[in-house]
Design a protein around this nucleic acid. Sequence first.
DNA 1: CATAGTGTACTACCGGAATAGTACACCGAC
DNA 2: GTCGGTGTACTATTCCGGTAGTACACTATG
Lengths: 125, 125
Amino acid sequence: MGLRFDPTRPIYLQIMEWIKRQAVRGVLRPGDRVPSVRDLARELQVNPNTVARAYRELEREGFLFTLRGQGTFITRDAARLARERQRLLEQAVQHFLEGLRELQPSPEEAERLMEILRRQLHDDR
Amino acid sequence: MGLRFDPTRPIYLQIMEWIKRQAVRGVLRPGDRVPSVRDLARELQVNPNTVARAYRELEREGFLFTLRGQGTFITRDAARLARERQRLLEQAVQHFLEGLRELQPSPEEAERLMEILRRQLHDDR
DNA sequence: CATAGTGTACTACCGGAATAGTACACCGAC
DNA sequence: GTCGGTGTACTATTCCGGTAGTACACTATG
């Protein structure tokens, strides 16, 4: 269970993002069932209401759908997931650039950072 | 006034980070006075208590110091600021890499991202 | 001295996040 | 039908962030 909560942000939002990331990277595939509200709550050590809220919001977004009495499932709309993945990628780059711009790294620092990034991106698979 | 609040995180934390960024990038220099609690509160459209809390925490961290009746000031410890700057840089890279790793970009995507980063880092100054 | 501008402390109140507990309707399998 | 597992709805409670308002001690300026 790889989920560490940021204590400064609502848990239900972090659960939502966590589910999205798992679906987007293929750990959860279109049509897959996500854990039951009670199971996930026990696993994450949070209240079932909190998980239920995350599921509810994700369903409102069309990211999940539920079958009463059966469970909650990842949308079967693969294009939806692909779009979300693209959005997350762009957002990550955007965030990073904004953060850097504010710190105004020198050309040397910038070069050093790029080197680190290049190494990491090619190493870890 | 370039500060947009993320509604999912406490305002006082975002003010703290904002001050730090300004100090670290030299907009605010060691020993400079920061706006009064009331002024900044009016400028950011928040309650003076919220700004006061941000200042209080930053003073507890040794990042600010106050002179009663005069105002609140950036620490004169330049090394402290340099260390903070380094910390923010590393944190930005770390965050970015974690975000990417989760999305598992293909080699082609990774190459495209690096290209975007390189262009942005060399362009915008 | 008086005044205005500092930070600071305090009370009161409101709203949202999270917890705890209970209950209900639905589905599948025995 | 019964039973266990689903999602869902609801109330009550606690905690914390944020707001509002007041008051006080300090400093610089005049």
